[in-house]
Amino acid sequence: MRLQEIDRGDSIFNRLLIAFISLVSGMRLPDAARVAFYHKDFFGSPMGAWTQAAMRGPSAWSVGDRELMAALVAKWNSCDFCVGAHGAVAAKEIERSLVDTALADYRVAPISDGLKATLEFLEAMTLRPTELTSKSAAAVFEAGVGAEALKDAIAVGAIFNIVVRYANALDFALPTANEFDRAASMLLKRGYAS
């Protein structure tokens, strides 16, 4: 973590909260949660509200689908923290082996044609955004995905193109696989709204 105020908390309440959660969970509170608590009114609140709606709100996509999208956006941005965090949540909703296959190459993973086409759109959105055209979206429609479902996926893509950038810029500490797994249980239970 490159900003010490985020690491330790920016108020007495937040310092106590970070210490308490770390103590109860038996692991260092991940940097993503520390950022969510920091200067909350400025960023954590509006970002958390959109993330909670996109990742846990009503959608044609399952929570596992959306977490897999997040993990892949993280992969395309070389964000090891977010690949680990969201891959771990996806693995609780989908099979771990399926998540690993999709992370290695979603094109050969045993997932629906609609999800594959959507991931192809999200990959272009992440890596070549100016090349997106109506044909890119039409290809997703042809795979059986509706406009509202594609919009939901685009929201996930936009949010994680933000998250990975501050995670990388701030150099989030990488938890162990076991810690990612425990943090994933908390994310499934509590969601993203800070």
Partner: peptide
């Protein structure tokens, strides 16, 4: 500094949001 980092990250993400929505709206 955090505000500036958050703004930069958000700018890159929302640029993608706008371009992707434009593609979606045109296809719709």
């Amino acid at each position: 500094a955090f505000e500036i980092i958050a703004a930069a990250a958000m700018g890159a993400g929302l640029m993608r949001w706008r371009l992707a929505l434009k593609a979606l709206d045109e296809a719709s």
